[in-house]
Design a binder for these strands. Structure first.
Lengths: 146, 146
DNA sequence: TTATTTGCAAACTGTTTGCAAATAC
DNA sequence: GTATTTGCAAACAGTTTGCAAATAA
């Protein structure tokens, strides 16, 4: 599948927000544009707030946090937990995995070929569990933190 | 390798705490015992505080939080981020992976056979990155949340 | 016209910290 | 004896919430 352009991503975000019943305020419009521009990053709500404020300096923090949560509820953004307590938002709609730097904590998207594993049913106590999907989390050092 | 008994785990925790220069106060002793008793769970600091208070009701919250951080610094406990913002502590010293229930958010330890993957170097931008280890995170539903 | 959204401020949760008194070694 | 640890309370970071005024549809 081809990688969607920024304009395409913006259109998808607008359309799906609208069909989820979200009204297109100027505040939400700017947020959607910024989300559509970000690629391969994992911003916190505060990162998004700062970027929105470069365009709309007087927007309130509550509005951005609320709108980000609306997008999560609608399924347009995914969440990741970060160990410092902040939530990170997942903007990449392609199937991917993650690399986390043990030094700075930043996260990069990783693409894998032939991922294969087999659950050891004897040692794992997963009888009656329904596994929907699995992802790989790599840990290491980024070039800056060597 | 055989799975260590609770008594062995307690001894290891005590020994390594001592050689890290941590003094054995009654408060720390109770925490270490509780940590050694927990197996395959992923308690938050508050979970640990509540369990310690069943033995030492007057222990202060700050003491438990501080001691848990000491154990993390010493390498005796691992950390995991939880999406609700709380930190979870990792007590299982064996190599393992995780299953998270999308319903209740609880985490179980999983053991894998023949984990294999290959990073797609063309699509991933990981030139100069040093990968130290990789783990699998499974997502699905536990029997109670079906 | 009306249900949604905004700005603002206060509240809330998990965690960290400063300090004087207590205590392990 | 002295460096570490404790209890306590206040501070802190990230996030959520209640409410009256503004506004998208």
């Amino acid at each position: 599948m081809p990688i969607p352009s920024q304009a395409e991503r913006y259109r998808v975000l607008r359309d799906r927000s609208a069909s989820a019943g979200l009204r297109m305020t100027p505040q939400r419009e700017v947020l959607l544009r910024i989300v559509s521009e970000i690629d391969g990053q994992h911003p916190t709500a505060d990162d998004l707030l700062r970027r929105v404020r470069r365009v709309l300096p007087s927007i309130s923090q509550g509005t951005v946090y609320r709108n980000v949560q609306d997008l999560v509820r609608t399924g347009l953004l995914g969440t990741r937990a970060r160990s410092d307590g902040a939530a990170q938002y997942e903007l990449n709609p392609q199937e991917h995995h993650h690399f986390t730097c043990a030094g700075c904590g930043k996260v990069w998207d990783v693409y894998l070929q032939d991922l294969r594993y087999h659950v050891d049913r004897r040692r794992s106590r997963l009888a009656g569990f329904q596994i929907e999907r699995g992802g790989v989390e790599l840990l290491g050092r980024c070039p800056k933190c060597h």
